[in-house]
Write a protein that binds this DNA or RNA. Sequence first.
DNA 1: CGACACTTTGAATTATTTCAAGAGTGGTGG
DNA 2: CCACCACTCTTGAAATAATTCAAAGTGTCG
Lengths: 227, 227
Amino acid sequence: MALDTASLRSRAVESIPSPSLHEGGLFAGCPELVGSPFAYARDEEIYGEGEEAEFVYRVTSGAVRTYKILGDGRRQITGFHLPGDLFGFEPGEVHTHTAEAISETKVLMVRRRQVARAAATRAEVACQLWSVAASGLRHAQDHMLLLGRRSAVERVAAFLMDVDDRLGATGTFDLPMTRRDIADYLGLTLETVSRTVTQLESDGALLRAGGRRVSLRRGRMRRAIEA
Amino acid sequence: MALDTASLRSRAVESIPSPSLHEGGLFAGCPELVGSPFAYARDEEIYGEGEEAEFVYRVTSGAVRTYKILGDGRRQITGFHLPGDLFGFEPGEVHTHTAEAISETKVLMVRRRQVARAAATRAEVACQLWSVAASGLRHAQDHMLLLGRRSAVERVAAFLMDVDDRLGATGTFDLPMTRRDIADYLGLTLETVSRTVTQLESDGALLRAGGRRVSLRRGRMRRAIEA
DNA sequence: CGACACTTTGAATTATTTCAAGAGTGGTGG
DNA sequence: CCACCACTCTTGAAATAATTCAAAGTGTCG
């Protein structure tokens, strides 16, 4: 199950950064779409729902959350975006969600119009956009299954394994986001997330070391989901 | 909240098909992508999760559900697809969900490779693919908010209003799918859906006439959601 | 009419939430 | 270097929304 919605980056790309990252381009083989660097502070808004979608972004460092929010404050995070991930490029004129930096974050940004223009003339660019959107769609559908049909333990376990995968699948990592962010991503409360992590720990599916560091026992993790 | 990328179309829309349907093409302005007609019986599988994604489809009549299912039978319907809607075209080699006809259904199908080839050479085709995928993504994100953060009444009310919209917003229509399908789309049980419809009726937000016919009082409906 | 599938309703159960304290962590400044 | 503050995380107990199990009602179609 994929953590986020619009991510081009494969696991391999994590540890062996993609050429496009080194080139500084938003899209591989697109010298005209280099992108301007920009930085955001923790919790700073990158764009808001309803605003004109002027730019598209690629994370170079840090992390971003995108979410939708209801009038009474209920929030659903639709994706976490890590270095290498693209976000914010929808074909519509207006952003359909809000994006915020989770921590100090650097991005590359390109005008949406430039991308649209490149896509209109170069089939390969348009194909890249298609495949990015389609992989986002795949992730979104996996997440629908999680939100609609999985229990709290299953959600948390799947989430932790997914984060591990994206961070190199070493089994040990620091969670980059708060319990509240996790809860709002998994459709739970922060207390339930906390309790569930505790439960997984006492089931021997993971170990915790101060702060947000965890070590997963993937085998037991999977068993914990079944049980 | 959109019911789907591929949504419920009214009988009216069926009788006044879109231009592209008349052309018989899967994509507007693509004579090479005409598509072969094919028919499926009620509950017949069109393709299964994990199968090679050989074709892409456009519904010409009837209705299709696409879903993911867990080992123990828990099912999440990710979309209902109605006449005019495209489905089944993912850039990957393999279908990530199952598609079934909800009722007698006719489709046009085209080999995925043909589409991929057309997209590779014609930017406008690739752009169409992008925008179809992106609108699916938008829908998926709205649905995530519904699944992760909305109550049963809110889910059902939003669903009913969405169906009404797609059936011409007349306020009165027949639900084309079973309670179980609705439940599996909304992440609820069929009993909860049933109870919730009853509750909305006694709140004066809708009227029921035998079978699956309902008349919405949109104003009260919205108030029922708030209360 | 009778069979069958779908829907409604009821009562008991349960997973998750809510409300309410504490405990841990990290940063800042005295 | 320690004390303190703000923030996040954990834990407990009570409340609740939704589920589960069970049965009866409704409609449809041969």
